[in-house]
Every structure is written in C-alpha cells, then in structure tokens.
Nucleic acid binder design. Structure first.
Length: 691
DNA sequence: ACCACGTGTCATCTA
DNA sequence: TTTAGATGACACGTG
C-alpha cells in the first residue's frame, strides 16, 4: 500500500485530496481506473508512474488548463509524450466542467480518498474541486477506464458528453441517457432531492421518480435492518461484534449485503436541509429514513451513519436522485469498468469551519455510481489514515512541527484508533480485516503510530488536542454517535516520541517496547506499512523532511548541513539522530556480521586447506619413509655383499660386526674396525688402516 | 515446544 | 575529547 498525496490549490483555497493507492493493484490490475487531480509534472507523477508501471491505465486530468498537460498519466511524464485523444477529450470535458463551475471529482480506483482540508472561507474553491471531481466521476467516460476514454474520445471531437456516457453505468443507469454537461450543471444547482425530480423531468424520465420512491422505501427498510444489526453489535462483545462484521462482510461480498452504504449516506445528506451538514457531523440530527435501493429502508442517524464508515467521497459520489445502486452482477460481468471507489468517511474537520458549506457541493453530484462488493474488499488501512492526517498537516499552511508530538497525545491510548473505518458493523467500505485491521479491542489503532505512542513516543510533551482544522477524521467505530470532537478523540493515541536527554532508551525498555511494537506491527500493519521500518514510520509521523535512507547514508558534513538548513524541532532532531545512529549501527552490525561470517568461512577454508596439506604431507612422509626403508634395505644388502667378498690378511672373511665401511671424501672406501671408530680419531685411523 | 538462524538494537570498546 | 565504526549481548521473529 502506498499513498500519493495530490494537492490542488484552487483560487487560494487549498484542498487536499489524499489518496491511498494500492500500488499493488496498480501493478496487478490492468484495468485500473485512475484519475487523479495532480498538478503535473511533479514527483508524485514519477512515483505514480514508477509504481503503476506501463500497463496501468492511470489517467490524469489536470485542473489547470494553463499547465497544458492532459492525458494519461504515463503520458504526462516529464519526458513528454503526445497525449492520447481520449485524455485530451477528457481534459476538454474537464475544462468545460470547470469553466462552468460544475463539480468535478477524480474517479480513482483507490483504496480510499481523504478529503483532507478545505480552506476556510473559500467554499467556492472547495466546491469547485470537490464538485468538479464529482462531475468528472459522474461523467463516467472520463473516469471510467482507459478503454472507455480511448473509445469515446477519438471521435467525439472533444465533446464532453461523449465522455460523459459511461459504459460503467449498468442496469438502470443504462436506461438513462448520458447526462450532458449542462445537466451536470443542473445537478450542481440542485441541492435537494426535489431538484432531482426536475432533473429527471428534463431528461424525460419522469417515471424514475416513482422508481426513486420505491428505492427510498427499500432503503429505509434496509437501514432499519442495519440499525438493528448495529444495536445487536453494540450489545455484543468485541469479538462477537467482529464476527458479526465479518459475517456481514461476507454477505456483502455475496451481493446480498444490506450494510449501510454510500447511497444511504447520500440520501441522508440530501434529505437534510441546507447547511445542515455541520449539524449532521455533530451528530445532532434525528434519524433519517434511507432507502438503499434494495427493497429495504432504514432509519439512520447521521452520526451513526458516519460512524458506520461512510465516506465523504462516497457521499459526494452518491446520486441524490436515488438512482445510485449496487449491481453486483454488472460488476462481475464488467469488472474492468466498474467504478472502484473505496470510500471512507474521513472528512476534514474544516468542513465545520465557517465559510465551508459542504452541503453546497454534496448534493451537487448528480451522478450514478453503483458500488460493488469489490469496493468492499479494499480496506483502508487505518495507519495510512493516521499518517495521511499527519502528512497533510505538514503540507498545510501554518503547520507547526512542534505540534506533532502534541498531536500524538491522546488521553486514552487503549481506546483504539478510530481510523479503523472498516471495523464497524455497518461499514459500507468493508474491509478485509485479516490484513488491515487490528484484532481485539484496540482495533483500528495504528500500529505505526501506536508503536510510536507505546514504545517510542512516550513521555513527550502532550496533553494537547490538535486543532480541529488540522485533522480529518471520523470515528467509524464509535456507535455512540458522532460528536463534535469526534475527529480528534480517537485519531491519536498517546503518540508521542519519547525524548530522552540521551535520545536513547534503556535497553530493557526498548527491548520490551520493541517487541511489543513488532507484534502490533505484524498484526495491524498492512503490507506496505509492514514493509516500512519502524524508523521510516516514525519519520513519517514526525514529518521528517528527509528519507531514512538519506539520513543514514548521508555523509557527516552533508548531514550536519542538512540539519542546519532545515528548521527542526528538538523532537525531530532527536529522531533524526536516532534514526541515523540506528541506521548506521544497523549497517555496522550487518557489516560486522558479514565480516564475522567471512572470517568464519575463511577460517573454515583454512582448516580445510590445512587438513588437505596435512594429508598430502602424511602421504609424502609415508612415501619418503618407504623410500628410506628401501634405501636402508639396499644398503644393508650392499654391506652384506661387500663383507661377503672381503678377506683379511689371512684370507678369512671379514666379520661385519667388527668392521664397518667408511667412505672418504675422495671416493675411496675404507674398512674400519668399529672399536677404532672413536670420535675425532676414526678418520685418521681408518685412513691409516686402509693404507 | 524447542532450536537454529537472521536481524535490529543497545552498550561498550576502539581507532 | 569527540566521533564513527566495530563488536558483544540481548530480544525477537521465523522456519
């Protein structure tokens, strides 16, 4: 899992769309629909392209005509390629939509979106982005898929309406004509359900109103059932509730799920009076009957809905005319064309800021999106959201790194991180809890940050609740409602970096904490986070502006210069130094072990070589001994032969026991009596006797 | 459950 | 004296 963080500054308003991209999917899924709003070319593009690979169908629709960059993401590479007609068509559509102020939403096959921050007082800008994004998504052709766009674009002459007819729209949507841009604008103007009826009249589908009513009724039933499930889950212990959730997930995957869905939320939103979103978010709204389009209706409290994992994006994408529906059959039949929106209710707390009228854009989206059970498969890792929230802070204006440790502070570290959007029993974004969610009561807590809080960040300055406008979070887990400070009560645990004077922790503590974090990491982190080292996640959490690799590998001078060039808090500085120390030591330990291993291997080789030499020497020794014995035997035989032939002066045989043979330097051989072979005199005696 | 191995980390030593 | 590197020891994960 890897997330990219596009941004878009719209007329002074700043809105962050933090996107979680399953880059693994990018690699695996050739039918990926990826539309991003990014100001290319940026490093993000490189990352995206690098991650997505040449086979992915990532599209980028730049909201900036001035950038002149439109087209497929892989064609937006700084190297520069010719944009394909489909992308140009989509770009023209987007420009038109943007010029008309129609909402636009990037249709992205992502694990999750996070509408992070909308600058206060710039509601128009925010609406422009979000609305435009929604419109683009509704246009379908823009966000459908590469194939879709490429099929529609070449001949449409840039007509956005052509692109607006999404092949993805299946079922009832296929009955409805493609919604032209003008109608998108109408949808933008319509912020209440009643407007939707007008829109349907315009398109000549008055009968849809009746259908809508039927769907509303069905959704009401559905939500009623869901509320019952929620109540049941609330009464059950955690593990049982979890089982219930899993069971529900399974049902959802089978297409029979009646879990609270996007349309539920959207209907709820649409049914709310204008400017009531804030009230909704505060959880002070009465239950609303919602039809899920599947013959069930539910009374849903908005706070409950939010807490039940309803994504704001999802809400944005919902069609207020209730034409939105889920079509598992169509999804399975056309998997590549299915919109793949994994949505979560991570909203920016700034939505409650004055001047940000979220209700203005939410109902603007007059698009039809049918969620698929596949959507539910893509869980959102809570850790990512944790980090997204933090990273988003870093990009916002007025971000103070000093706040980071304070952000980590949370009164109840065991309450579980509520970023676990998929842990609620009625989550529409069903998550695969097997790999993204923690088990147990503290489910959803970010192991990453939890490791920080529980293991490394303890003792840091705290007691501070982050400013609401700095965070974006919805507690999907809470069944108790949607409180005004919901976004901050569960977002951060005691995620504080433990700063000691030495920057180090005692061995025992660090060991125990390390072990705990390892366990938590293994249980809670998704694949990407699991691949991240602890320091990497720490650095990410503290917004260290350097990569761990840089910190570790950088030469000392460069490292010091780097530290001096950037304003870093003591906390960050301490973490950086710790990261560098640990990284260096890690490399040193690896080198040391490698050396040790090499030494051992060399010694083993030496032992083998020496043993081989020893064997050779043994064999040589044996051979030499054998040769010596042969020579001795020969010499002995020679002696016997010589003495057998020797005769004394009287002609008698010479006794070899009494005489011996001596070779002189001149080659002559002497016969010397043994008793005369005294040291120092033998030579002379021998010579004299021989003579 | 036990063991071997690899790895990260810390404390300490060394150049 | 400071510092980066080396290394022993410990804890943990994994097969």
């Amino acid at each position: 899992m890897k997330y990219l963080k596009p941004w878009w500054s719209d007329g002074g308003g700043l809105l962050h769309l933090t996107i979680l991209l399953s880059l693994a999917e990018l690699h695996l899924d050739l039918d990926l629909d990826l539309y991003l709003l990014l100001p290319p070319p940026t490093r993000l593009w490189d990352e995206l392209l690098l991650a997505s690979g040449p086979t992915s169908s990532a599209y980028a629709l730049s909201p900036f005509p001035a950038s002149g960059v439109w087209g497929r993401a892989d064609q937006l590479h700084p190297k520069g390629r010719e944009p394909d007609p489909a992308a140009e068509s989509a770009g023209r559509l987007l420009r038109e939509v943007r010029a008309l102020g129609v909402p636009f939403i990037p249709r992205t096959r992502v694990d999750a979106w996070l509408v992070h921050s909308v600058a206060a007082g710039d509601a128009d800008g925010a609406h422009g982005l979000l609305g435009a994004a929604a419109a683009a998504a509704s246009a379908g052709g823009v966000g459908a898929s590469v194939d879709d766009s490429s099929q529609a674009a070449p001949g449409d002459g840039g007509d956005p309406r052509a692109a607006a007819s999404s092949p993805l729209d299946a079922g009832e949507e296929e009955k409805a004509p493609a919604e032209p841009t003008a109608q998108v604008l109408d949808a933008a103007a319509s912020q209440e359900n009643e407007v939707l009826g007008e829109r349907h009249q315009e398109v000549g589908h008055s009968s849809q109103n009746e259908e809508n009513e039927q769907r509303v009724s069905a959704q009401e039933k559905k939500l009623q059932l869901k509320n019952e499930d929620a109540r049941e889950a609330a009464d059950k212990p955690d593990w049982e509730a979890e089982k219930t959730t899993e069971s529900r997930n399974e049902r959802s995957l089978n297409g029979t799920d009646t879990a609270f869905s996007l349309e539920d939320l959207f209907q709820l939103l649409s049914s709310q009076p204008e400017n009531s979103l804030e009230g909704l978010l505060l959880g002070d709204t009465p239950p609303v009957s919602i039809n899920d389009g599947m013959n069930s209706t539910h009374n849903v409290n908005f706070s409950q809905a939010i807490s039940h994992d309803v994504n704001l994006h999802e809400a944005m994408l919902l069609c207020p005319d209730n034409t939105f529906r889920r079509d598992p059959v169509a999804r399975t039949s056309q998997p590549p064309q299915e919109p793949f929106l994994h949505l979560n209710s991570h909203t920016n707390s700034e939505q409650t800021l004055p001047g940000t009228n979220w209700t203005g854009f939410l109902p603007l989206v007059g698009n039809q999106i049918h969620l698929t059970s596949e959507d539910l498969l893509h869980d959102l890792d809570i850790n990512i959201f944790d980090e997204i929230s933090l990273m988003s802070l870093a990009t916002e204006e007025g971000f103070d790194p000093m706040e980071v440790p304070q952000l980590f502070q949370e009164p109840d570290s065991d309450s579980g991180l509520s970023l676990n959007s998929s842990h609620n029993s009625t989550s529409v974004t069903k998550s695969n809890s097997s790999h993204s969610m923690c088990e147990g009561g503290a489910t959803g807590s970010s192991s990453d940050l939890e490791s920080l809080s529980h293991h490394d960040l303890e003792g840091a300055v705290g007691g501070y609740y982050p400013e609401p406008n700095k965070l974006c979070h919805v507690d999907h887990r809470s069944d108790s409602g949607f409180h005004g400070d919901f976004a901050f009560q569960h977002l951060f645990h005691n995620h504080t970096y433990h700063l000691q004077p030495s920057g180090l922790e005692s061995t025992s503590n660090s060991f125990s904490r390390y072990g705990k974090s390892q366990k938590i990491r293994g249980r809670c982190l998704n694949d990407t986070d699991r691949n991240l080292s602890r320091d990497e996640r720490r650095a990410k959490a503290l917004h260290i502006p350097f990569s761990v690799d840089e910190i570790v590998r950088m030469p000392v001078e460069s490292f010091n210069n780097m530290l001096s060039r950037h304003y870093l808090t003591d906390l960050q500085m301490s973490l950086i130094r710790d990261i560098r120390r640990r990284g260096k030591n890690k490399v040193a330990a690896q080198n040391c072990r490698k050396r040790k291993l090499d030494i051992i291997l060399n010694l083993e080789d030496d032992v083998c070589n020496l043993q081989a030499k020893k064997e050779i020497l043994k064999r040589e020794r044996a051979q030499y001994n054998k040769a010596i014995n042969i020579l001795k035997q020969k010499l002995h035989n020679l002696y016997r032969d010589i003495f057998s032939r020797l005769r004394d002066d009287e002609g008698r045989p010479v006794n070899p026991n009494q005489y011996t043979l001596q070779c002189s330097q001149d080659g002559s051989v002497l016969i010397v009596p043994k008793e005369l072979m005294a040291p120092g005199h033998r030579k002379e005696n021998q010579k004299g006797k021989t003579k």
